Deep mutational scan, measured.
Amino acid sequence: TLFEALYDYEARTEDDLSFHKGEKFQILNSSEGDWWEVRSLTTGETGYIPSPYLA
């Protein structure tokens, strides 16, 4: 399933992933509550992002 970022986000820890509004992601793991592990389709990087920032 693909999701798109609604807002920009700046990583706060080394496990987080910074991203920009409009960036698209593949969800790798959504079992961690509000923090999902994703792969950016723009950069190929993986990390955790806050799920409320996605649509």
Rank of each mutant, 00 (worst) to 15 (best):
Phe3Met: 07
Arg12Trp: 13
Ala5Thr: 04
Glu23Val: 02
Ile27Phe: 07
Gly44Pro: 00
Trp35Gly: 01
Ala5Met: 05
Thr13Asp: 10
Tyr53Leu: 13
Ala55Asp: 12
Asp15Gly: 14
Glu23Asn: 15
Asp34Pro: 07
His20Lys: 13
Thr42Val: 09
Gln26Phe: 14
Leu17Ile: 10
Arg39Thr: 04
Arg12Asp: 07
Asp15His: 14
Leu28Gln: 01
Lys21Cys: 07
Glu14Trp: 07
Thr42Tyr: 06
Phe19Met: 09
Gln26Ile: 14
Glu23Lys: 00
Leu41Ile: 09
Thr1Val: 15
Ala5Trp: 06
Asn29Ser: 13
Lys24Tyr: 11
Tyr48Cys: 10
Tyr9Phe: 06
Asp15Gln: 12
Glu10Arg: 09
Leu2Lys: 03
Glu37Ala: 06
Tyr48Lys: 11
Ser31Trp: 09
Thr1His: 11
Ser31Cys: 12
Gln26Pro: 01
Thr43Met: 00
Val38Gly: 03
Ala11Pro: 03
Thr43Pro: 00
Ile27Gln: 02
Asp16Lys: 12
Glu45Ser: 07
Lys21Gln: 06
Trp35Glu: 03
Ser51Cys: 11
Thr42Met: 08
Ser31Arg: 08
Pro50Asn: 14
Val38Lys: 00
Ser51Lys: 09
Asp16Ala: 15
Thr42Lys: 11
Leu17Arg: 15
Ser30Ile: 11
Ser30Arg: 10
Pro50Tyr: 15
Thr43Ser: 08
Arg12Asn: 09
Ser30Leu: 07
Gly47Arg: 05
Ala11Gln: 08
Tyr7Ala: 07
Gln26Val: 14
Leu17Ser: 03
Ser31His: 08
Trp36Ala: 01
Val38Trp: 15
Glu4Met: 08
Ser40Asp: 04
Ser30Trp: 11
Leu54Asn: 09
Glu45Arg: 13
Phe25Met: 04
Trp35Ser: 05
Glu14Ser: 12
Asp8Ala: 03
Leu28Trp: 00
Glu10Gln: 11
Ile49Gly: 15
Phe3His: 05
Leu54Phe: 07
Leu6Pro: 10
Ala11Thr: 03
Pro52Ile: 15
Asp34Asn: 06
Gly47Ile: 05
Asn29Cys: 09
Asn29Pro: 01
Ile49Asn: 00
Ser51His: 06
Trp36Leu: 06
Trp36Gln: 00
Phe19Cys: 05
His20Tyr: 10
Gly47Leu: 05
Glu10Pro: 03
Ser51Glu: 04
Thr1Ile: 13
Gly44Trp: 03
Phe3Thr: 03
Glu45Cys: 11
Phe25Glu: 00
Thr42Gly: 11
Val38Gln: 00
Ala5Pro: 03
Thr1Met: 13
Glu4Leu: 08
